[in-house]
């Protein structure tokens, strides 16, 4: 029964070490809540904070056209900080389709 091939031993070792790492992380998370910041990726890695993003950062992403990026920043500076992403609809040039796309790019903290 214990006549494992080298490949089988490698797989068993990998699975066991993965399980062990999971157990360690799980118990660490119980001890310290901050550990979840290491375990789970922060939203900043996938989206831009609409109230903090600069024009340069926004134009660097190919997701927002340059003119629209300018209008979004102008809106934020002239009006007020965005409270909800729905306010993007008030920016000139943002229709239903564009709004659906922009929703995926920004977040509000």
């Amino acid at each position: 029964m214990l006549n494992f091939t080298p490949e089988e031993r490698k797989v068993a070792l990998f699975v066991l070490s993965l399980g062990l790492a999971g157990l360690i992380l799980n118990s660490l998370a119980k001890l310290n809540c901050r550990i979840s910041g290491i375990v789970y990726p922060q939203i900043q890695l996938a989206r831009l904070n609409i109230n903090q993003v600069t024009l340069a950062e926004l134009t660097r992403t190919k997701c927002v056209p340059e003119k629209l990026a300018q209008r979004i920043i102008e809106y934020r500076n002239l009006q007020h900080e965005f409270v909800s992403l729905d306010e993007l609809k008030e920016v000139k040039g943002v229709g239903r389709k564009r709004f659906e796309k922009l929703k995926e790019i920004f977040f509000i903290e």
Binding site: G19, G22, V39
Partner: peptide, 16 residues
């Protein structure tokens, strides 16, 4: 569930 946490850590590391 136990396998998911190391996977998430590695993905986090990759993104950073």
């Amino acid at each position: 569930y136990f396998f998911s946490q190391p996977t998430s850590v590695l993905i986090n590391l990759l993104l950073n």
